[in-house]
Write a protein that binds this DNA or RNA. Structure first.
Lengths: 208, 208
DNA sequence: CGGAGTATTGAACATGTGTTCAGCTGTTGT
DNA sequence: ACAACAGCTGAACACATGTTCAATACTCCG
């Protein structure tokens, strides 16, 4: 390998990067608490002592994963399309780790979530102004719900994939779900507002 | 307390039940791998030895939680409303545990997921026949996606609650998201099918 | 070459983990 | 009353975990 002596964060393929990638995969698969430093070290083909030498502690390793995931997702940040596309197109280990991080309420995952929601909210606002998004009484709640919906198959990937047949990471499977979702989002699911009306009625009855 | 000498699974409030409830809560909060037998024992006010005496092992304890969650959710099983209502109306610890179990791919959680999807699919089919649900090209994928969507705020509860202000378990907060979701499901989110069309175009171009 | 500094390791440590076991209650059936 | 038995415990064990440390291999710079 040829690295500049003082290697900054640029050079990859180094042992440090291998450890981070191994941690990303294991954290995503087995959860953070369910993953041991020794397992990560074994996957990366190094000694347990080296991972703590590079990252200080297991917590430091997890933070490095957080940072890497944020970078990987924000890389195409300036894109004009919806912010969530980047998440869904990220590499599989990154997605799996993100799902775990969201459940474990990692600080970085939390920050990423609000960032995506805010980007989505203004994206929807723009669409509303241009006329291709319907009006909403609660744009914030809509943005949050919309993001949650797009994130759902990612978090529940295993179960979704099992029922749709095939690996959820496989594009063919994901496409089926995405298409069904898009159908509901453009034409709606219900033909009348019986459920919305029923919900509103119950909601208004339970409060003055 | 007064229990029949040979106490079946009926009598609750016993130490066994307290342990199970404590485990449910801690598993939901910290994850299964992140929870120690000692911690749930302390929460239940018993010795660690007792929890293994009652459940055989930590794994046995987790299975007991699975069974209990299944029972708690299936209790109102014969209801005519959508199957998911039972999940969303379950007690908070049960919901949190279910979210964790779904991510950890517990067998019971997997079984519950397919059960809910199947119930939802026939519920949607009935609605389609009665005219208050739109037709779909892929009813299976639609049911899976729909269930994922309703499960999403449950799994991402912390982040959703933080952005909507207030405890996600609080009804007031959940209602905001539910209303926004229902709006999208009845009126749709987009006013035209530009995204659906774009998706279809891309999809058909990437395969013969 | 020689010295500086980093990458890397094996062995060890302290602690937390799941689990076992002998024994101590209390209640129950006869 | 007495044996049987389930609920329950404290102490202990074997093991896995995160982390430390001294020492070795390697690479670069003067």
């Amino acid at each position: 390998m040829f690295n500049t002596p003082n290697m900054r964060s640029t050079s990859d393929l180094t042992a440090r990067a291998r450890i981070r990638d191994a941690a990303l995969a294991r954290f995503g698969t087995d959860g953070i608490a369910g993953t041991s430093v020794r397992a990560v070290a074994a996957d990366a083909g190094v000694s347990p002592a080296l991972v703590v030498h590079h990252f200080g502690s297991k917590e430091g390793l997890r933070q490095a994963c957080d940072d890497h995931v944020l970078d990987a997702i924000r890389s195409g940040g300036a894109a004009a399309t919806e912010a969530l596309g980047e998440v869904l197109h990220a590499a599989t280990p990154v997605r799996r780790y993100l799902a775990r991080a969201l459940l474990d309420d990692t600080p970085a995952a939390g920050a990423l979530f609000v960032e995506i929601v805010e980007r989505t909210e203004s994206w929807l606002a723009a669409g509303e102004e241009e006329g291709w998004v319907r009006a909403s009484a609660d744009t914030r709640a809509r943005a949050v719900t919309y993001v949650s919906w797009l994130l759902a198959p990612l978090v529940l990937g295993d179960h979704v994939g099992r029922l749709l047949g095939g690996d959820p990471a496989e594009t063919a499977t994901a496409v089926r779900g995405a298409r069904a979702g898009l159908e509901m989002l453009t034409h709606g699911l219900f033909t009348d507002d019986r459920w919305l009306a029923a919900f509103t009625a119950v909601d208004e009855r339970t409060r003055p």
